[in-house]
Amino acid sequence: MTTKVFTLSSPDIKEGHFMAKDHEFDGFGCDGKNISPELNWANAPAGTKSFAVTVFDPDAPTCSGFWHWLVTDIPLDATGLARGAGKGSLPPGCRSFTNDYGSKNFGGACPPEGHGMHRYQFTVWALPEETLPADNGASAAVVGFMLNAMALGKATLTATYAR
């Protein structure tokens, strides 16, 4: 018996490759278009009732990385998010949490100039509940904790960026 692997793919970003300027933030000294890439997933684990998507930079010069996007309660029938969905055009019922830019929308890449290559981990999480049990005002760290504690599976696509 072959087990299908939970996967995440995108026509806009590729594993280990440099992201386009379209996905760069439009603030903090950056002048990109701040467009979230199209994301597609397949083969969710049995028992999945909803999905979440996060974008995290573990290379940010902080003590805790940098959260760029946190979306939960994505309906089970969703198989992805459209390009640009991070500007507020998510499927009905989704919840967004405040990222480290202070916004609930997608916040693109904006590593400090000369800081070297940063990794941007786009992750889809398969969850056993329709709603993540976190308050709407929960911090990114709490959302990340809840996702790690509950996930039936996850798939990550890591793109890179530098300035």
Rank of each mutant, 00 (worst) to 15 (best):
residue 90 L to W: 04
residue 84 G to H: 11
residue 75 P to A: 02
residue 69 W to P: 02
residue 99 N to R: 12
residue 66 F to K: 10
residue 92 P to W: 08
residue 86 G to R: 09
residue 97 F to P: 02
residue 100 D to F: 03
residue 89 S to V: 08
residue 82 A to I: 02
residue 73 D to M: 10
residue 76 L to R: 15
residue 89 S to P: 03
residue 84 G to T: 06
residue 97 F to M: 06
residue 102 G to P: 12
residue 100 D to P: 02
residue 85 A to N: 01
residue 73 D to L: 10
residue 87 K to L: 02
residue 88 G to H: 07
residue 98 T to L: 14
residue 67 W to K: 13
residue 63 C to M: 10
residue 78 A to F: 04
residue 72 T to M: 05
residue 72 T to G: 00
residue 59 D to I: 04
residue 82 A to P: 01
residue 98 T to V: 13
residue 64 S to N: 14
residue 83 R to I: 01
residue 77 D to V: 12
residue 79 T to F: 07
residue 69 W to K: 09
residue 70 L to F: 04
residue 96 S to T: 15
residue 93 G to E: 07
residue 90 L to S: 05
residue 93 G to D: 00
residue 94 C to Y: 05
residue 90 L to Y: 10
residue 64 S to I: 04
residue 68 H to N: 15
residue 72 T to H: 06
residue 84 G to K: 11
residue 60 A to G: 10
residue 98 T to Y: 04
residue 60 A to K: 03
residue 88 G to K: 13
residue 89 S to I: 08
residue 74 I to D: 03
residue 103 S to E: 13
residue 102 G to L: 03
residue 103 S to A: 12
residue 70 L to N: 06
residue 75 P to L: 03
residue 99 N to W: 07
residue 67 W to S: 14
residue 88 G to Q: 11
residue 93 G to R: 01
residue 82 A to C: 03
residue 81 L to D: 04
residue 65 G to C: 07
residue 94 C to N: 00
residue 80 G to I: 08
residue 73 D to F: 03
residue 69 W to T: 01
residue 59 D to S: 14
residue 80 G to D: 04
residue 95 R to E: 06
residue 60 A to V: 03
residue 97 F to L: 08
residue 73 D to S: 06
residue 98 T to I: 14
residue 70 L to S: 03
residue 75 P to N: 03
residue 61 P to Q: 15
residue 79 T to A: 08
residue 72 T to C: 03
residue 91 P to M: 07
residue 95 R to H: 10
residue 99 N to T: 07
residue 65 G to A: 09
residue 102 G to N: 11
residue 78 A to S: 15
residue 96 S to A: 12
residue 99 N to I: 04
residue 62 T to K: 12
residue 75 P to M: 02
residue 69 W to R: 05
residue 68 H to W: 03
residue 95 R to C: 04
residue 80 G to C: 04
residue 64 S to C: 13
residue 71 V to A: 05
residue 66 F to A: 09
residue 94 C to T: 15
residue 92 P to T: 13
residue 76 L to F: 14
residue 65 G to M: 07
residue 60 A to C: 11
residue 85 A to S: 15
residue 62 T to I: 01
residue 90 L to M: 07
residue 89 S to Y: 08
residue 64 S to P: 02
residue 103 S to W: 13
residue 80 G to K: 06
residue 62 T to P: 00
residue 59 D to C: 09
residue 66 F to C: 05
residue 81 L to M: 10
residue 61 P to K: 15
residue 76 L to Q: 13
residue 82 A to L: 09
residue 102 G to S: 11
residue 85 A to I: 12
residue 85 A to L: 09
residue 86 G to D: 06
residue 61 P to C: 11
residue 81 L to R: 05
residue 69 W to I: 04
residue 100 D to T: 05
